[in-house]
Design a protein around this nucleic acid. Sequence first.
DNA 1: GTAATTTCGGATAAAAAAGTCCTATTTTAA
DNA 2: TTAAAATAGGACTTTTTTATCCGAAATTAC
Lengths: 147, 147
Amino acid sequence: MTVLFSKKCEYALQALLFMAEYRHEGPLSAERIATHLDIPKEFISKILQSLTKSNIVISQRGKAGGFRLARLPEKISLMDVVENIDGLGVFSDCLIGHPSCNPEAPCPLHHSWAPLRSQLKHLMEKTHLGNFIPGQTLNQLPDETTV
Amino acid sequence: MTVLFSKKCEYALQALLFMAEYRHEGPLSAERIATHLDIPKEFISKILQSLTKSNIVISQRGKAGGFRLARLPEKISLMDVVENIDGLGVFSDCLIGHPSCNPEAPCPLHHSWAPLRSQLKHLMEKTHLGNFIPGQTLNQLPDETTV
DNA sequence: GTAATTTCGGATAAAAAAGTCCTATTTTAA
DNA sequence: TTAAAATAGGACTTTTTTATCCGAAATTAC
Ligand code: SF4
Ligand code: SF4
């Protein structure tokens, strides 16, 4: 098992982090991304296609084509990616898959897990691709009021 | 996907919680457990066999046989179960499956995830089957110094 | 314009996880 | 003593996830 996300989702995140770092080199081909991450080219292709459909990346066919981020790395949250690939179940489903749970009387686990889960959710929402770009000490968006 | 644990592990936890609650009725058969949880009998049988080998439950063959907890519900932590079924990877593996990670310079995710993960670990360690038994307000072990 | 390169998308294959089946063995109630 | 009931364990099947293949369409460098 992976930790929290499917392999698809892990690869998507890895690919996007790579694309964020190298976004100035023009579109990156699936081939190059696959080589860099050491994962199958055909698999990451499919994943990138899916990210294209959900407007997280933009694809370009033909020679010198490839994929690039659809917007600033500071504008793509990890949650955007997780939601697109795995969905939001991880932030809402029962930790032990219990079928007969009475929400009125949550079990002892719930009281402790719910806050953790909510922190996790917040973490994925507040963390953006931009936060991972090396050598960029200030990975924040310009203050909207001053722009 | 499940949230954090495999289905095997979820079922194991569900079964053990049930066994803790009904531990006074003698051994519970795989059949009865499966019916109660509405999961396949053959599947939970295998899981219980595994739990037997790791001394979390005790099995008894023959008529009126079945499974019962190997020790007090207060003495079986959720971590005992998770460790036996899924292993401890979830508490140590990289959240995004990143292959090339320099532990000297952890990524931005790590700083936020590590504490959550450690809280999660602690939660699983401190929560015991005994904490789930209904109608039992005091689900703690007797103070060792007074016993 | 043409050839090279790349994504698109459907089909298929392999691997892993989940679920099922069957027989042997053990135990006990009657 | 015997039949019923239960676990043990190996083999097998199905489903889901992960991975691969291939032809068509698009784009661009030349
Ligand atoms: S209360 Fe317990 S059983 Fe119910 S959803 Fe929360 S963790 Fe699951
Ligand atoms: S630092 Fe980042 S990439 Fe490395 S193990 Fe932690 S989460 Fe994964």
